[in-house]
Design a protein around this nucleic acid. Structure first.
Lengths: 223, 223, 223, 223
DNA sequence: TTTTAACCGAGACGGTACGTCAAGTCTTAAC
DNA sequence: GTTAAGACTTGACGTACCGTCTCGGTTAAAA
């Protein structure tokens, strides 16, 4: 088993590295579970290493030995919960109707953001990422990328189906679709509703521009 | 004189409210300046009320008397710096070419995000907003909304010029254009470059779809 | 009226002295009463100038203007309460039987020490005296001395009656009688009971020595 | 080793007690020494836990972990200094002449009271005792009692030598001799001189009465 | 099988910052 | 010019955690 995946933000760099072979799996799981639960219960501001250690029935040193920061613990906690037992990432639905599929997925995301049990840990992790480039890199590679790959795969399927142009920059496309949702969630600058999800999916696919930005162009929208 | 603008995140709610008429303007400015400078210098994690007070040459109590949280101080600091002396918000450029204007503005935003002097305080404020609904409300109303209104005004101008459809939901449109930028900035899931800004502006305006959804266009999809 | 007696520990020495003629008698009484009551209610440790000012409905500056320290306020408070409206000090009982009179007085003192309403302010004042020589001088002159004079007067009466030798150092005598009571009260090194008062009165008058420490020694005590 | 002697005023009662076995002896000594030195240098009013911690090179929590109050620290500091390395209490001189021995001891006490290095910490401790019954109990049992026992032992010796009556209440006797000294020291109601010590010793032993209360002596009281 | 080296729970330690309280100074407006 | 009111700087309070260190105890690989 590859325990390396448990040190996403880099193992502690001072002194000798600990011997991963002897690591207690029970402690590791207890710590991650405690961190995840605690952040949902008391919120990010009151989450502390001491609290996690106490809740997990673990010495503080056991946390400091294996994780370099509170954010790294949080990262692993979210990572653990985000992955099924197989470690894979589910693919996006593909009914052949991209617009409908996107609307479905965005609505599901809206629902997740509305559930504090998911939302709070993610918010906390986002906060840590914003201030810790190392953690951000780990996040980009190990949490965002797999999901992004699934999203891009769905878009590629749409490309193959002729729904999207073949030369589309898929990273920009993914950001255009999901970025507004994330931004509104974090900044709370507007309501996060299914209606917003629908409007977002439609606007992203169709663009904001009128079909033809000329007086004549207007006539091109018949039927 | 309107002293109301000094309590954006809500005055402390415990006990009697302090007498705002006697408030020291010098202390207020020193605190906000110190907060803004410090967050740029030492970063969000090491920003402390004690540090702000010391830097501002002010008693801690003076901060606690007028602001309910570190985030509220940060909010006012950003607010103070974001507004010119007149307190107004600048309008977006309007050359008649929406795409070009948007690209210009997004590139400028990218540049701001790249400058730690602007970026760090904003990151810190974003973090606080993510965990403090009260602060989020103040942010939405007093920082985001004026800017958003300027953005919407530019889009309305485009509507009048026939560049955008008249029934466009402008809030969704604004989020579609600027949301991806914010998300990538906070989550660091990709490079924040002028190229990204350009691609974003284009994609948002044109949509992702292969062509304008005209009857003929549809036929171009083989099979 | 002589308001000079209100600044026993010395008026504030910085800056111009306030104009005593304009002093508000109502505020003065409210402050002293508040101080006396508060020290009995919340104890010495939690007695604060702010608390006194708030309870008296008075600005803090009014206290600082007229008293140099918390102890000085306390002193005046105790002084006010210790004196009747006439300002005189009551004489000790004089039935002709010194031993009985002393026992009576000491028992009364024991009772006073047992009553927190008297005891707490006195304890607080004693504490201040122990650390403030200025206040100690004021105490010695204005609180202790009158009382001590009354005690000495009773002893002088006993000298005239032949109960005490004429060459007795009355200050030492007063300390010998009342000192042990005070010490036990402050240090709580033993129970403060009527029995102790009686034993003390007897021992002080008779001395500890056996009537005749040596057969010959007796002869040394000639008339 | 008896670590029990380190919690004279009672260990902190909230929560679990700390694990005394792991206590740092170096920190304990540094704290007590710092407390003792500081109270002599800056006085009782300016003595603070923060100051002690800083002077001792110790975290504040280390003080709060092991002592319930500033007074308890002071107590241990005085206790440490009052005991020799053996922890015993020296006996009073016993030349066979009680009066001379007492005068000697009282003069020595007067000298100690005149030396700020001893006097200041004791004054501070007395102050704390006066307002903290728990501390007073600890004082009575662990500082006063051993010394009092030594005093009583000297008096017992005098009883055996026939200098004092066998039925004398020794506690009252001790208070009669030493109480006036303590009272005058704390209240500064008179000069603390060798002469006072001598007069006190003599008066306490001989009593104030004009003559020994022998049956015949009584007849000397006219009318 | 025994050693031995690492991890483990526990928690004391020197620190930093918290948010509160009060000290003593200063300013304002009412009287 | 005093007064009530209260904002101000200062500094200590007692608490919560930080990240480091050390203590016995267990446990699993090495001898």
């Amino acid at each position: 088993m590859n325990t390396e995946r448990n040190s996403p933000a880099g193992a502690p760099t001072k002194g000798r590295p600990p011997n991963a072979a002897r690591r207690s799996e029970a402690s590791r799981r207890a710590i991650l579970t405690a961190a995840f639960d605690l952040v949902g219960e008391v919120g990010y501001a009151k989450l502390s290493i001491e609290g996690i250690a106490a809740r997990a029935g673990v010495g503080k040193q056991t946390i400091y030995r294996w994780w370099p920061s509170k954010g790294a613990v949080l990262f692993d906690a979210v990572l653990m919960l985000s992955q099924g037992p197989d470690g894979g990432t589910a693919a996006l639905p593909d009914t052949g109707d991209l617009a409908a599929d996107l609307a479905l997925v965005l609505r599901a995301t809206v629902d997740e953001f509305a559930d504090p049990r998911f939302s709070e840990p993610l918010r906390a992790l986002s906060t840590e990422i914003a201030h810790d480039p190392d953690l951000a890199r780990a996040y980009a590679e190990r949490l965002d990328q797999p999901l992004r790959e699934a999203k891009k795969e769905r878009l590629r399927s749409a490309q193959r189906a002729g729904e999207l142009p073949g030369d589309l920059d898929l990273d920009v496309a993914v950001d255009l679709i999901w970025g507004p949702l994330t931004a509104r969630w974090l900044h709370r600058t507007g309501p996060l509703t299914h209606a917003f999800a629908d409007a977002l999916a439609a606007a992203a696919l169709n663009g904001l521009r009128t079909a033809a930005p000329t007086p004549e162009g207007r006539k091109k929208q018949p039927e």
